[in-house]
Design a protein around this nucleic acid. Sequence first.
RNA 1: GGUCCGUUCGUCUAGGGGUUAGGACACGUCCCUUUCACGGAUGAAACACGGGUUCGAUUCCCGUACGGACUACCA
Length: 498
Amino acid sequence: MSQPTRVRFAPSPTGALHIGGVRTALYNYLLAKKLGGTMLLRIEDTDQTRFVEGAENYIIEALNWLGITIDEGIGVGGPHAPYRQSERKDIYKKYAQQLIDEDKAYYAFDTSEELDAMRQAFEAQGSAFQYSAATRTRLKNSLTLSAEETKAKIEAGEPYVIRLKVPAKEEIRLKDLIRDWVHVHSSTIDDKVLMKSDGMPTYHLANVVDDHLMEITHVIRGEEWLPSAPLHVLLYRALGWESTMPQFAHLPLLLKPEGNGKLSKRDADLGGFPVFPLEWKNPDGSTAKGFREEGYLKEAVTNFLAFLGWNPGTEQEMFSMQELVDAFTLERINKAGAKFDINKAKWFNQQYLKLRSDEELAREYLSDIDVEKAVKIVHLFKERVTFPQEIASEAKALLQAPSSYDEAVVASKWNDDAKRGIAAFKEALVGLDNFVADEIKHTLSAELEKLSIKMGKVMQMLRVTITGLGAGPDLMLSMEIMGKEEVIARLEKALTTL
RNA sequence: GGUCCGUUCGUCUAGGGGUUAGGACACGUCCCUUUCACGGAUGAAACACGGGUUCGAUUCCCGUACGGACUACCA
């Protein structure tokens, strides 16, 4: 019996969406589309202390930019609304109560201070404190207190949490689609808090309840969740939902480019590259770079991200979103973490930039320049840059007369031959009516031939007199773009000042 | 510390009992070219270690080492 595939991306609105989260969303999306299923977006905002204004919109905009479309949930609605966990409190409360009634969960009144003290005491003895079957009989909860005492405390408004009564001795087996069977003993799992004292559920309860109610078939999430996955299995079991439990796939982590550990914002600053899809403005006014604003094309980002932890098993490198959908399978996801190498992202960007048409790029990035000219400029620079905005800066430099000249080239190439050749070329240019690359080139070679000077002797110096630079794109085309008057003016200036 | 997960070129990875261990990025060299870039060619570069199993292990098993994640009334 195969039910329709339903996957979810469930971020917390705590700030900018991390690029690892974007990859998780991507993989969820790819699986959903591959299987003709549904992609949900759910917001896990059960920690009101970490809520950040604007984060939810940021998530939506980021996914939207990359073409990761949401079929159901935040922003689009659906049959299981609301999709914001803070708006589902009553639902969680109901199931928590059910667990209490069935003696699968219990009230606990221990304060944070008391628990901290416990932890310290255990640590002093060289062991770790665990709120579990081994210790719960000695703590302040509805298992040790009488029913009357418990009731009285609750009615008196004393803060409490609800904890899962994790079985003392039970082997938990979990089949992960990427890692295969994972075995954990219940004695190593503590009695996790299900409902916090503020009435909000913890992630554990909320995600299990929601995934069940929303009929999620595959939970695809980061490896950091693997240690708590057995607990979630226990929860499905306690709630009587084990037979319809979703399948799990824990994705390998995105690692720092050098050294070890999870990729962080700090690595991005250090390496000068973004770790967020979009630019993010912090409430304090500071900003964090975004791939989009840095000039990464969305095709490059999705292709790059898809290949961090997954590959098609062929030698094809370039994949459109549709091709990714067609090729994607969970089986081909890797187990080991992947280091984040921004060089590869840049390479993808360059490849996708080259694929764009000159006209399109001209319209988008050189809108302030005459179209015909803009297209020529794009053609000149498209294959030489990594980011589209570099075309604009190159264009600006090209259209501006040089303010200085490459000294190394001047020192070695500014000789009599160069001076005579360039002077003659300038004079000949005055009489050239059809100022296009081919004609300009003919003019140059004709003049140099008359003087018996080899082309190679003056080319680089000619480039310097016109652009100030020792290297660059096709000079003849560059001159055509600048126009006759401008080129002659630049030559004159160079001839008199150098 | 405990629990869990992992380990093929510098990086992303393919492969899988017998292979010249393949590709891509980055790097070197050469070609193309008015230079640079693009492109093309080419080179250097890897199975963490130790035991098994086996005629034969990089591949399977077990250890060790190393790395990582988790260990909150955060997700």
